[in-house]
Amino acid sequence: MMLASHPAKRISFNRTIGDGDLVIVYERHDNMKAITVSEGSVLQNRFGVFKHSDWIGKPFGSKVISSKGGFVYLLAPTPELWTLVLSHRTQILYIADISFVIMYLEIDPGCLVLESGTGSGSLTTSLARAVAPIGHVYTFDFHEQRAASARDDFERTGLSSLISVGVRDIQGEGFPDEFIGLADSVFLDLPQPWLAIHSAAKMLKQDGTLCSFSPCVEQVQKSCDALQSCFTDIRTFEVLLRTYEVREEKMESIHGDSNGSNGSLPCKRRQCSDGNYVLSSHTSSVMARPCGEARGHTGYLTFARLKCSS
């Protein structure tokens, strides 16, 4: 269960891992895996063999040891962790875009949100968290198998009561008429989003919000064009994250000809080229620098708001 449907079901000091629970097995920050605990099963990885039965009854956040003495951590699933472990059936949205979309669409508990395509359900999972406990996400993909896999995933993450997955060609047919005038927000991640914009406008409530995600600027151009007639406040953004690595490094520091030792730091005398001696010592400090590689582009996010017809 990713979300607490009831206060008593949330993660707490007292809640422990049970048979059938979904856990995120953490090896390293760039190596995690989703596993459904099952009494008789084992997890085998480079650290050895882990028996699920050893996990049951331990709190989430525990470190567990393998037959060979290796270890992993067992974490409670969150939409952020899920995005890192889900199976990629399509390109997916990541945390920076996802967070911005939810805030900029002004989604909060109780909202009705329409989405297409579902893809791998990465965004859908966060949309569900945002509308819980009483809102709903209706998500559509024209690819039958993807829709079915997404449904399975939402079952597994315990979100199926908040999400309905429909199979439908949204570019061709638009969203179903039953949602006309009911949606607080619409999100599009489609190859030709401009074909769905007219339908999206019909679905939205007054002052409702729309977002379209597209990797290419030509798509953005066409979408913005299509938005002009019914939407206002049309804005396009790109959002990225730069991550930092933190290290404690020893560094030598040179003190001019000073009067001897420098606290408890290790010192040594060195002869300079001019024949004089200087004291050098090591100091260690914690330093941060940007990681060398980063995602340079994901997509453009175009937002708009349905014009008021007061």
């Binding site: 953490y26 920050h29 951590y73 974490l75 920076a96 911005f100 953005v220 151009q221 913005c224 049309i234 804005r235 396009t236 953004f237 790109e238 959002v239 990225l240 994250l241 730069r242 991550t243 930092y244 933190v246 404690e248 914690v286 330093m287 941060a288 940007p290 453009y300 175009t302």
Partner: peptide, 29 residues
């Protein structure tokens, strides 16, 4: 944040530690 992250690592108090800096650019279309 760097100091805090380092201390959390040393104290084995948390995992998945990351410092991120968001970057936002708007476009005229």
């Amino acid at each position: 944040l760097a100091t805090c992250m380092h201390n959390l690592q040393l104290g084995k108090m948390a995992i998945g530690l990351q410092i991120s800096e968001p970057w936002l650019r708007e476009y005229q279309v």
